[in-house]
């Protein structure tokens, strides 16, 4: 059940690089990351790749496989024909460090800019009461494993380095939505979403949603509702106030 596959893997660093050709063994049930590891162990000991969990939980092994942003550990070899060439390249939206490893510090900078959860002042630890239906919306967004595939895909920054300063990307706009929908968060998030994090750049193409390995409905459930709230509020600040007060927990 083993066969030999033709792999093309991008090798190089910030200075430049090229696709390297490899003939490599593939066994039943394997995923692309297994093959990359086999290359490391047998043909290219210094091939750089990030990974941790090998189970789709940590979001480390992001790359582009035949041009599509994916997790290497969740891409099964059985999705390719045996004679198909499998091309693995690093995420395009971020600067290359070496081989398949990119510099994703952009994301950590954006994460640091989003104002943290503001706990309600009148509640002590242990006193929080929230209904399951009210936490579910934000919980969906907290499934995010920070693989940054959505960031890699979004056309606003994919080939537009110049937009990175003003646009936080789907992952962090979703983080703002998550806090905005948190039943007990005590901060106004909507103004900042629009003015500081670039929600206006998003034209709801849903490309981010398509690549999300956690199947989070980023566009439909986070970005569009966030846009609607911002619009409502522009005309009527009371709408926003009302929505926050209305979502106070009943006790």
């Amino acid at each position: 059940m083993s066969y030999t596959a033709h792999f093309r893997v991008w090798r190089g660093d910030a200075e430049g690089g090229d696709l390297g050709d490899f003939q490599v063994e593939v066994n039943e049930g394997e995923v692309v990351l297994d093959i990359i590891h086999r290359l490391q162990a047998t043909q290219a000991g210094d091939l750089a790749v990030r990974w941790n969990c090998k189970a789709g939980k940590c979001g480390s092994c992001s790359a582009e496989i035949n041009g599509r942003p994916r997790l290497m550990c969740m891409t099964r070899m059985s999705t390719f024909a045996e004679d198909e060439t499998v091309t693995v390249t690093p995420m395009r939206a971020f600067p290359v460090i070496k081989d398949l490893v990119t510099d994703v510090s952009f994301n950590y900078e954006k994460a640091r800019q989003v104002p943290a959860f503001a706990p309600p002042k009148n509640l002590q630890p242990g006193e929080y009461r929230m209904a399951q239906v009210d936490v579910e919306r934000s919980q969906e967004f907290r499934k995010c494993i920070e693989c940054y595939l959505c960031q890699d895909t979004c056309h606003v920054v994919r080939d537009h380095e110049e937009n990175k300063k003003a646009f936080a990307g789907p992952r962090f706009l979703m983080r703002i939505a998550e806090l905005d929908m948190h039943p007990l968060d005590a901060k106004d998030r909507q103004h900042a979403a629009q003015e500081e994090f670039g929600l206006g750049f998003c034209n709801i193409t849903k490309c981010c949603t398509e690549v999300c390995p956690e199947h989070i409905k980023i566009t439909d459930n986070a970005l569009i509702p966030m846009k609607e709230r911002v619009v409502d509020r522009k005309y009527d600040p009371l709408v926003w106030l009302g929505s926050k007060i209305g979502r106070r927990p009943e006790r």
């Binding site: 943290a116 959860f117 706990p119 929080y128 009461r129 948190h182 006790r251």
Partner: peptide, 14 residues
């Protein structure tokens, strides 16, 4: 929870 964690809830919101 004061850091922002969202655990699954019981019917009475705990």
């Amino acid at each position: 929870e004061t850091y922002g964690a969202l655990f699954d809830r019981t019917v009475d919101g705990k």
